[in-house]
Structures are given as structure tokens and as C-alpha cells.
């Protein structure tokens, strides 16, 4: 069971959170005019990297905030967590 560092509450057990998948994929600007390809890309395509991954979590059983985590998908190491609106930290080497 992972320890997720909520930027508000600190480290809490994974069971308190809801996972939200990849972070920072952009809803196309002027989305109503977006091409089918661009829209499908936004809806369905995710990176699913082997390695460092910026992802979304919500502290459901805690402060109910959505935030971002940089997690390694193989080792589950968590490099950092940050709030919505914070600068995106660099991925570890």
C-alpha cells in the first residue's frame, strides 16, 4: 500500500485516495471546433510510461482535494506531489 503525500494533509495511506490517471493532458482549446482526431486524442490517448509519471490523485477520505503526484510506475517511488496551479516540477533523471 503506497503512502501518498497529499500536499495539504501530508503522507496518507493509498486507501484514502482515488486515482485519476495521467495529469496535464490538455482539453483542446476551442474544443467545440477541435478535429475528431484531436478530440479522440484528448478523450482516449494516455502516455502510460514505464518510469516517471505525473498523475492525478484525489484525497477522497481526507481533504477532498485533487492534486498531482510524480510517481515511478515500476518502483512506485514518489518524487514529489504538488497542488493545482503549482509549477510542474521536473521529472527526476
Amino acid at each position: 500500500m503506497l503512502l501518498i503525500p497529499c500536499p495539504y494533509c501530508g503522507e496518507r495511506a493509498e486507501g484514502e485516495f482515488r486515482y485519476g490517471g495521467e495529469a496535464h493532458f490538455r482539453r483542446p482549446d476551442n474544443h467545440l471546433e477541435a478535429t475528431d482526431e484531436a478530440w479522440a486524442d484528448y478523450l482516449f490517448m494516455r502516455k502510460n510510461p514505464k518510469g516517471w509519471h505525473r498523475e492525478r490523485w484525489m484525497h477522497l477520505a481526507g481533504c477532498r482535494r485533487w492534486f498531482y503526484v510524480v510517481r515511478h510506475t515500476i518502483t512506485h517511488k514518489i518524487a514529489t506531489a504538488y497542488k493545482v496551479g503549482d509549477a510542474h516540477p521536473d521529472l527526476p533523471a
Binding site: 494533509c9 496518507r12 486507501g15 484514502e16 477520505a61 481526507g62 481533504c63
Partner: peptide, 9 residues
């Protein structure tokens, strides 16, 4: 703190 006890928030 808000958390879970068993399966209750």
C-alpha cells in the same frame, strides 16, 4: 483528521 476506520470514512 479525516480518514478511514475499516471501511467507514
Amino acid at each position: 483528521a479525516q480518514s478511514l476506520i475499516a471501511r467507514a470514512q
